[in-house]
C-alpha cells in the first residue's frame, strides 16, 4: 500500500503500453496492455470508461479464450475462483486511489478478465478488481468486445457515503497466458492450455496500433496511443 498526496482536479493525461509475448507473426501470443492516468486528482474526477482500440486482425475471437461464461453476481460474491475455469481469459493488477479523510490512499488490486454472459451478438467480458488492504473490496467492471475495440465501463464506487469516488488510476492486464482449461475427451476431463490470441501472418503497415480513450466523470477525455512494431515472422 502507498499513501499518495491529495491532488487538485485538473485535465488528466494518460499513458498506454502494449506488448505481445512472444512476438511472432502467425503464432499464438499473449496480449498485455496497461493504461494509467497521469497525476492530476483522479479521485475528484474518476475514470468512468476506457475504449481500447486494437487492430481488428488480431485473433481475439478466434483465441479459444472464454469458452464458458461467469455471471457477474457469482463473480462479485465468490471472486474469480468461483467462476468456471474455462471462463478465465486473463489476469493482471490495478492501482486504485481511495479517498480516506483528506488523503488519497493507493491500493494495489488483483485483476481477472473473464467471459461474461453475452445476451447480444458481441462477446461480453467481466473485469474483476479485488483489493485486500487497506480496504477489502471487489469491483466488477463490464466490457464489450467489438471488432477492433474493447469498451470497458467503470462504475462509480464509494467506500463511505458522500465520500468521493474510488478512482481506478492504473490497470495492467494480460489476455491469454498461464490459463488452464478443461474439456471432455472420451468421457474423461482433460486439462489443456488454451491457444491464445494468434497474430496475423502479415503485419499492418507501421505496426500494430493501439489506442486508449479514457473518459472521466466530468465528461473529459484523454487519449493515449501505443504501437507494437512489426515482429519477425514465426
Amino acid at each position: 500500500m502507498a499513501v499518495l498526496p491529495s491532488r487538485a482536479g485538473a485535465a488528466q493525461g494518460a499513458t498506454l503500453s502494449v506488448k505481445f509475448t512472444p512476438e511472432r507473426l502467425g503464432a499464438p501470443t499473449t496480449l498485455s496492455f496497461g493504461f494509467a492516468v497521469a497525476p492530476g486528482g483522479a479521485a475528484r474526477n474518476a475514470l468512468t470508461g476506457v475504449e481500447l482500440s486494437y487492430p481488428a486482425t488480431l485473433g481475439i475471437s478466434t483465441s479459444g479464450l472464454g469458452l464458458a461464461s461467469c455471471s457477474p453476481a457469482l463473480l462479485e460474491s465468490g471472486g474469480p475462483a468461483a467462476c468456471p475455469a474455462n471462463s478465465h481469459m486473463g489476469y493482471g493488477s490495478a492501482l486504485v486511489e481511495i479517498p480516506i479523510g483528506h488523503e488519497l490512499v493507493g491500493e494495489t488490486a488483483t485483476v481477472a478478465l473473464l467471459a461474461g454472459p453475452s445476451p447480444n451478438t458481441s462477446l461480453q467480458l467481466l473485469v474483476s478488481v479485488t483489493g485486500e488492504s487497506p480496504v477489502a473490496a471487489r469491483i466488477v467492471l463490464s466490457a464489450q468486445l467489438l471488432p477492433g475495440r474493447l469498451d470497458i465501463r467503470v462504475p462509480p464506487v464509494q467506500i463511505l457515503p458522500e465520500a468521493p469516488y474510488v478512482a481506478l488510476v492504473r490497470l495492467r492486464a494480460t489476455l491469454g497466458g498461464r490459463l488452464k482449461y478443461y474439456e471432455r475427451v472420451h468421457g474423461r476431463t482433460v486439462a489443456y492450455r488454451p491457444r491464445g490470441i494468434v497474430l496475423p501472418t502479415v503485419c499492418p503497415r507501421n505496426g500494430f496500433r493501439f489506442a486508449a480513450a479514457l473518459t472521466f466523470l466530468d465528461g473529459s477525455r484523454s487519449l493515449a496511443r501505443a504501437t507494437v512494431p512489426c515482429p519477425r515472422r514465426g
Binding site: A56, G59, S61, T62, V198, T201
Partner: peptide
C-alpha cells in the same frame, strides 16, 4: 464438416 488448416489472426 471442416477443420482448420491455417490461421492468421481473425482469419481462418
Amino acid at each position: 464438416h471442416l477443420h482448420s488448416v491455417g490461421i492468421s489472426g481473425s482469419r481462418l
